[in-house]
Simulated assay, not measured.
Amino acid sequence: MPVLSRDNAPTFNLPGICFTTLSSPSRGARENAVWEVTIAPGVSGAPHRLTREETFVALSGSAMVELDGQRFDLVAGSTLVVDAGQILSVSNVGTEPFRALAVLPVGGQAVVGDRPAFTPPWAA
């Protein structure tokens, strides 16, 4: 199915963070999972790494990104490319929600600390 409706897109919530699956294998995609992430003001992201390259396109608001110990501002209209294996956290230190699209190749997994790699449900 080439056109997927947001109306029936699966949504996953963590405290202060919402993931809306736009495309993924469970929605018929074969190569890439794409989701919208919304981070509420004042929410700090958990450090993690990915087994494949991940791309974020900032849509609105701003975020502070920590990538392998370096800090970057991610603002609407900018793009962040995270290499596989880099330690990443995305936090919203602003006063409005931060929204971005994220793209991860199918088969990419997340690793948090020393836990086993897993496929995030919004990318499955």
Rank of each mutant, 00 (worst) to 15 (best):
R115P: 00
N92W: 06
W35P: 04
Q86L: 03
T11S: 12
P120K: 13
A123S: 14
I39M: 04
I87Q: 10
M1F: 11
P10M: 10
V106Q: 04
V106M: 06
A40T: 14
E31A: 06
G107C: 09
A117E: 13
G69N: 08
L88S: 00
E54V: 13
L22E: 09
A63D: 03
S78C: 05
L67R: 05
N92S: 09
N92Q: 12
R6I: 14
L80H: 09
V75C: 07
L4P: 01
A100L: 13
L50K: 05
P15H: 09
A84L: 07
V34H: 02
S62I: 02
A124Y: 01
V75P: 00
A110M: 15
G28P: 11
G77Y: 08
L50D: 10
V106R: 04
G113Q: 03
A100S: 11
G45E: 02
S60E: 13
I87L: 08
G107F: 05
P10R: 14
D68C: 06
S91P: 11
T38R: 11
V57G: 02
A58S: 13
S89H: 03
T79P: 03
D68R: 04
D114C: 05
S91Q: 12
F118H: 13
V37P: 00
L101A: 10
S24W: 02
V112N: 10
R99N: 12
R6Q: 12
V34R: 08
L88E: 09
R49I: 08
C18E: 15
E53S: 04
G108P: 00
T21P: 00
T21R: 05
F19S: 01
G113R: 02
V111Y: 02
P47W: 05
N92I: 07
M1R: 11
V3G: 00
E54T: 04
P47L: 01
A123K: 07
F98Q: 10
H48Y: 09
F56C: 09
P47S: 08
E36Y: 07
F72R: 15
A63Y: 14
G69V: 12
D73R: 03
S62W: 03
S60H: 07
N13H: 14
V106F: 01
P120W: 06
P25F: 00
P10A: 15
V81H: 08
V81F: 08
G108F: 04
V65S: 03
D114S: 09
F56E: 05
V43D: 04
S60R: 11
I17F: 03
N13A: 12
R6F: 07
A63H: 10
T51R: 06
D73V: 13
E66S: 05
S5Y: 04
P116T: 14
G108M: 13
F19Y: 14
T79M: 15
P97Y: 14
G113H: 03
S23L: 04
P10T: 11
V43S: 00
D114H: 05
A29R: 04
I17C: 06
E53G: 01
G45F: 08
P105L: 08
V82G: 04
Q109F: 01
R99D: 08
A29I: 01
P97D: 14
W35F: 15
M1W: 09
E31Y: 06
A117L: 07
V103H: 02
G16E: 11
S62M: 13
P2K: 12
